[in-house]
Simulated assay, not measured.
Amino acid sequence: MTRSEKEQLVAELSDAFGQANCVVIVDFKGMTVKEMEEFRKIGYEAGLGARVIKNTLANIAFKNAGIEGVELIDTNMAVWGEDPIATAKAVAKYAKENDKFVIKSGVIDKQPVDAAKIDEYSKLAGREELLGMLLSVWTAPLRNLAAGLDNLAKKKEEEAA
């Protein structure tokens, strides 16, 4: 990789890390190319970016994005996305399916976090689930009113008969 290619890669990653609300660092040592492509496909479907990157280039990209305190050792893949919960869910799900895919650390809202925090985020309700719960709460009074009126109508019919 030439110097200009490295500079371009660092610029792209700095931009991606700066815009992402969640970056997860995973170890992929021992994974086959097929397994890596399988994860990339899952990540693409979830709207995530994923890249294997040298630690020095990743450290420069994190620094350029204004993120401090991320330690990178050994082999690393960075996975990033807009929604921290969706990102954590996708990574944690694949980590459960493949024991060679190990969550090491990450960054959520520009703050470094450990693997346990990412696992906690993966167990939270996602945006769609929360919107469904909110909609259910909003429509509950109307459902109750409709059920009450229906019961009243049935009662009046029984009394009339």
Rank of each mutant, 00 (worst) to 15 (best):
M1Y: 11
T2R: 06
T2L: 09
R3H: 12
R3D: 09
R3Q: 11
Q8S: 13
V10P: 15
A11C: 00
A11L: 08
E12L: 08
L13D: 07
F17E: 02
G18T: 03
A20M: 05
V23I: 14
V23P: 11
I25N: 00
G30E: 01
G30F: 00
M31H: 07
K34P: 06
K34E: 15
E37Q: 10
E38C: 03
R40S: 07
I42Y: 11
G43Y: 06
A46M: 01
G47E: 09
G47N: 08
R51N: 05
R51F: 09
V52W: 01
V52D: 01
I53A: 14
A58I: 01
I60E: 04
A61N: 04
F62D: 00
A65F: 14
G66Q: 08
G66M: 06
E68H: 12
G69F: 10
G69L: 04
L72V: 04
L72Y: 10
M77D: 01
M77S: 07
E82H: 15
I85L: 07
I85Y: 03
A86W: 05
A86T: 13
A86L: 13
V91I: 13
A92W: 11
A92F: 12
Y94T: 04
A95E: 03
A95R: 00
A95K: 01
K96G: 11
K96Q: 14
N98F: 07
N98K: 00
V102M: 13
I103A: 04
S105C: 13
S105A: 13
V107F: 13
I108V: 15
K110H: 14
P112T: 02
A115S: 13
A115E: 10
A116M: 08
I118S: 01
E120A: 12
S122K: 03
L124P: 05
A125V: 02
L130D: 06
S136G: 15
T139D: 06
L142G: 14
R143P: 03
A147D: 02
A147R: 07
D150Y: 13
L152I: 08
E157S: 07
E158N: 08
E159W: 14
A161C: 10
